[in-house]
Design a protein around this nucleic acid. Structure first.
Lengths: 405, 405
DNA sequence: CGAAAATGTTCGGATTTCCGAACATTTAAA
DNA sequence: TTTAAATGTTCGGAAATCCGAACATTTTCG
């Protein structure tokens, strides 16, 4: 697979490094947006000229870190895959990023060929062709798959609940593929994507015909859009509706779904348990990923060591499947022996975990908390919150962007 | 009493108001330091050219508030009396200052004659000539007075414990006045006063002769000074030593007293209960103040109403005697009828108490907390704390000043 | 007791933050 | 459906913050 025709956002302040990567990516046929500041990166990714396929991002930036950029995006949207460029000593940071669901990282200095290979790897779509249409092997995963099969035969709305990285979009797609509507369009409306990147609901409804409309993140729909959806569903719309929600505390508090709309979905829900509750699925999924990835190695590995499997079971998987896939990618690439070992999967073991927050971090945390409290108090009214906080509307808006609120 | 020869610090940014007050105070013979910023005020009060007798301070300043200035000073020292200038609508703020122990306030617009009278009132020393040498009438107060009389006859060190505003310095003075050493000097070393305003311990020891050395705030002595004092006490120094301590949580954590020094005082302690634990003393003391202050009115009042007395009993007196005296000053001045009523003593009743902290306030609170944590972690080592917090030593020092740490 | 280390403190320059004005877009209300 | 209100967002200038260098003073340690 080539990079030709892809849109890459490059966030790198170093003139030489950035120039090299920029030039080489364009030689490969990619379209590159090069920015030098975290703030600029935020804008470029949130409101891009065209959809962003991947982000290549340095860790250290003049106005913050790549980590902050990524996590800020995660709070209000679903960012495109990130490939981080880290220097020596930044490994603990990069590993945290993997845990949070970032795609991968490379360590300076690196050869351009290896870098391009890694970038090409993460550009591949989330639903790998090599994986079977199955959530897992645990009892909980089998219940999910049974419900998916059952609901695929129906026409009623379905709500998929579960944390990020659990493949809710893939479940919706499978439900569509196993239904009578499989020949009609499958249209996704991702509410987590930045404003510029997502179509209006009306546009999505216009495109779906008698197919399946998938609303990713129903709690993020505006009240007006929720009204439109409710109308469509109660007036016999020809398409089938599947929605997902991410039971994140902030989302629940901030973006309530009107009760009557929720009522339409209440009878048919699919809850996807987190990987931490089904460790045998983590091992199974890792095995699936291993088969696919190992097949690409010039010198194939023999498998996962038993200790690696034990470590997979013991991990708490805050990033769920996305984190698992990223770790497998790195492990298969980095393995020195003939098998994958725990230290290949979890290189951060031994890294310092106890860090004293800096003054800037403490200040930011307090600002984030206070702004959130003010927004809560004003029911999301930004202008009123600005008055309460005694800052200008501009200042509040910029801080909200910076802090990911 | 005139203002002649007194040193007044004026903190007022308004050119016209400041110019008027400055000119009139100098006409009255006072020496005036006029600053326009809270930060400048901090410096002028902490390291003055000569000791500060009083501060005249506006509430609203370009770089903060008079309230912040006062409270910042209170955290690390015992500020001179403050007379606040407040505009309309600032009454709740001024009342909070009274509660915290500030001397008084005037409301714009005011006539200069009344302003000067009020300033003259607060310049009078804390121990008013009109008050009897007595702590109060409650059982607890009588125990304190009995101990003072008993210890006055001895030569052993004495420790006076109690919160600010309870007259610990007056108790020490009374102990001296009732002792055989009354003809010799009484020298006070106030550890709470700003660095520039307090003499070195060695200087105080040199001046006391066979008199009484009063260490106000023994926990604030440096380890070296504690060593000097210990040596003096164990090697038969000719003077008598009385010390006070303020059982404030911050002081206890920050400035521990070495155990062997504390041992020398342990056998003779006087604990002064807070006014909140002896409400009848609050009423008695208010009565004493009333007699003194009422005598100065052109049209004397008949007394405190029974409801006023009830309100005095009910109040929790966070500022203890200092707050009580300030409230009586205002009440006797402001009384409209022939008696003092609750609303004269507690004008803030009805004022809005629930305020949402601004973003700057939240940020400051977080900074204060984080800096305190860092200092705690580094055992007071400022340079190490700066590294931990990832700020420069200068920045940390300035923030410590601003935040009162 | 003297030297080293740390604190106390100031100042000017660089950097960052904050803001009002302005305009486009979206949402809410009439 | 139209209008008003609010949000989304940018930009340049003013104000505030942060810092290193520097020097005086105090504290600590050998």
């Amino acid at each position: 697979m080539t990079l030709r025709g892809r849109h890459i956002v490059l966030v790198e302040d170093d003139e030489i490094m950035g120039g090299s990567v920029h030039q080489r990516l364009e030689l490969e046929g990619a379209s590159v947006t090069w920015v030098k500041l975290m703030g600029r990166g935020l804008s470029a990714i949130r409101t891009p000229r065209r959809p962003v396929d991947a982000v290549v991002c340095d860790i250290r930036l003049p106005d913050g870190t790549g980590e902050e950029l990524y996590e800020t995006l995660c709070r209000t949207s679903s960012p495109p895959p990130f490939l981080f460029i880290t220097g020596q000593g930044g490994i603990d940071q990069a590993v945290r990023l993997l845990r949070a669901g970032a795609a991968d990282y490379v360590t300076k200095p690196f050869d351009m060929g290896g870098f391009l290979d890694r970038l090409a790897l993460i550009l591949r779509p989330e639903e790998d062709a090599g994986l079977p249409p199955q959530t897992g092997i645990s009892a909980g995963a089998r219940r999910v798959d049974a419900l998916v099969a059952e609901y695929a035969a129906g026409d009623h709305p379905v709500l998929i609940r579960g944390a990020k990285g659990l493949g809710k979009a893939r479940l919706a797609r499978r439900m569509h593929d196993q239904s009578d509507r499989r020949a009609a369009p499958f249209v996704e409306r991702n509410s987590y994507r930045a404003t510029g990147a997502r179509p209006a609901l009306a546009e999505a409804i216009g495109a779906v015909g008698e197919g399946t409309l998938f609303i990713n993140g129903i709690e993020r729909l505006s009240p007006r859009d929720q009204g439109r959806l409710f109308e469509a569903l109660t007036e016999g719309a020809p398409f089938r509706t599947i929605a997902s929600t991410w039971p994140d505390t902030e989302a629940t508090e901030g973006g309530a779904v009107r009760a009557d709309l929720l009522y339409l979905f209440a009878a048919h829900e699919v809850f996807v348990p987190p990987l931490s509750e089904r460790p045998e699925d983590a091992v199974w999924l890792a095995g699936q990923f291993f088969e696919v990835l190992n097949g690409r190695r010039a010198a194939p590995l023999r498998g996962l060591s038993s200790h690696a499997e034990a470590a997979l079971r013991a991990h708490d998987w805050p990033g769920n499947g996305r984190e698992l896939r990223a770790r497998l990618l790195r492990a298969v690439e980095a393995a020195q022996g003939d098998r994958v070992f725990p230290s290949d999967l979890f290189p951060e073991i031994g890294a310092e975990s106890d860090r004293f927050p800096t003054l800037a971090q403490a200040r930011e945390a307090a600002e984030r908390q206070q702004i959130a409290a003010a927004l809560s108090r004003t029911d999301g009214q930004v202008g009123e919150a600005a008055k309460l906080l005694r800052v200008s509307r501009t200042t509040l808006w910029e801080k909200m962007q910076k802090l990911g609120l």
